[in-house]
């Protein structure tokens, strides 16, 4: 996958999963996200790139309402998942987050066993009726997280005892265990070494078959490697959004060009 030239990629436009219209985010007096309009497609990896502090992580956290936990954060505009407004007062964020899973920048397994880490989500959502069913869900999630072979003999060992890369794949397995429809990843590889990064990237490419994946990354190479769509954020605005190949080879906006050629950021 790493050697595929951009222009030869087979681009298939999928149906829109998440759509944001005139999205504004304020942190207190700070206008962090300005007028963002974006359509995130199903079964596609969408990368958010941009310099530090440009708002890409903030916008990502809007997509599953993780910003609700920050008191001073205020979100305006309309963000829909399958056409339903996720900021509708009738929406329970807990239900939303079960549909839109999230993987964080720093691997953050619970200080519990590997099994419990993965089983926690299905347990609280009541996805398993029996222990056997739960075992099955855990195994499936760990296999999808590409970590099953490494941990199958020590499921009772603490998740915090794994290496950084394994922890991050465990967190991905934990996120997919609740059968989400969208997977948000906030710089999932920034704390990992190149080998672990390669494993996670490979995993992201596999996950694309079932989920809509949104990944925030600082590494433009990573965005180029794993994503089909790329959004470039700068100073809180979405500067350019399009096919990854087009963004990296033929950016329309001068700011995008400056960033990907290393002149800003």
């Amino acid at each position: 996958m790493y050697d595929t030239p951009f222009l030869e990629r087979n681009i298939v436009t999928q149906e829109v999963k998440i759509s944001a219209r005139d999205c504004q985010v304020h942190y207190g007096d700070n206008h962090a996200i300005k007028d963002v309009n974006v359509d995130i497609e199903d079964k596609t990896v969408t990368a958010f790139i941009g310099p530090s502090g440009c708002g890409k992580s903030t916008f990502l956290r809007c997509l599953n309402r993780m910003n609700d936990t920050i008191d001073i954060c205020r979100v305006e505009g309309r963000i829909t998942l399958d056409g339903e407004d996720i900021y509708d007062p009738k929406v329970d964020p807990v239900q939303l987050r079960a549909k839109v899973g999230m993987v964080f920048q720093k691997p953050n397994p619970f200080p519990k066993s590997i099994y419990d880490n993965v089983a926690y989500g299905p347990k609280i959502h009541g996805l398993a009726r029996s222990k056997a069913e739960l075992d099955e869900i855990v195994e499936k999630a760990l296999r999808r997280g590409a970590i099953w072979d490494e941990v199958k003999d020590r499921l009772t060992a603490p998740g915090t005892g794994l290496s950084g890369g394994q922890q991050q794949r465990l967190c991905i397995a934990r996120a997919v265990a609740t059968e989400p429809e969208v997977l948000l990843m906030d710089e999932p590889c920034s704390a990992l070494d190149p080998i672990a990064t390669a494993q996670v990237e490979e995993l992201i490419d596999e996950l694309r078959e079932q989920y809509s994946v949104v990944i925030v990354t600082h590494s433009m190479q990573q965005a180029a490697r794993v994503s089909q769509k790329t959004a470039f954020f700068h100073m809180g605005s979405l500067v350019e959004f399009g096919e990854t190949g087009q963004i990296f080879t033929n950016p329309r906006d001068p700011r995008t060009e400056s960033y990907i050629t290393g002149r800003i950021g």
Partner: peptide
């Protein structure tokens, strides 16, 4: 840890 729990829908 709080993020992780909220992230899986707790």
């Amino acid at each position: 840890i709080r993020d992780a729990a909220l992230g899986v829908g707790a």
